[in-house]
């Protein structure tokens, strides 16, 4: 086992897709019943590769990853979104995930993010604790959000004052149902 000090934290580099993405997919797919397609990875990495951070061990093996994006939310606040976070099982409990998430948040703050949101499975207490320690709050529960039938919490972190009052355009897909025809 490696001591935490021997880990290197690096920013994702799109020119190394061939070597990094397969390792990333392997790491993330472990926790999923159904893997994400390559398009999901490319969707994030090609547009926001600089918001993706990796933890590598001394043999240059990937042991942790965080994937995120940052864009205006419906013409409103600049919203960061943490899409995926994974740490290899035998490396858990060493603060690697927290470090990775901090790097992503710091990068988003540098790029003027107003808020950061994410979802986490209700049963994933470790993830919830991690984000809540960083100041995230649960804003809502999402019923049966995942394939396995588990619900999720939406977690939110405001980085600036006044974000809650920024108006957004369009209809929130998680908003109220359209009127029921009677």
């Amino acid at each position: 086992m490696n001591a935490p000090s021997e880990l290197r934290y690096v920013r994702y580099d799109n020119s190394r897709e061939n070597e990094l993405v397969p390792a990333m997919r392997q790491l993330i797919s472990k926790d999923l019943s159904e893997p994400y397609s390559i398009y999901v990875y490319r969707y994030f990495l090609y547009q926001w590769g600089d918001l993706c951070f990796l933890a590598m061990d001394d043999k240059n093996e990937m042991v942790g990853v965080v994937v995120s994006k940052l864009e205006p939310h419906r013409d409103g606040p600049m919203r960061g979104y943490i899409a995926m976070l994974a740490v290899r099982e035998e490396y858990r409990g060493r603060g690697i995930a927290t470090k990775l998430v901090r790097m992503a948040i710091d990068a988003m703050i540098e790029r003027d993010a107003d808020e950061i949101v994410l979802e986490t499975e209700i049963t994933n207490t470790a993830a919830m604790k991690l984000y809540e320690r960083l100041g995230f709050l649960r804003s809502k529960q999402l019923h049966r959000y995942y394939l396995n039938g588990n619900s999720a919490y939406r977690l939110v972190l405001y980085l600036k004052e006044g974000v809650g009052a920024i108006r957004t355009a369009f209809v929130d897909p998680y908003g109220p149902p359209p009127p029921v025809p009677v």
């Binding site: 100041g135 972190l157 405001y158 980085l159 809650g164």
Partner: peptide, 13 residues
């Protein structure tokens, strides 16, 4: 070590 302040958290709530 949280990123947010009580004021920001109040705003979310």
């Amino acid at each position: 070590q949280a990123y947010s302040s009580d004021r920001l958290r109040y705003e979310i709530r």
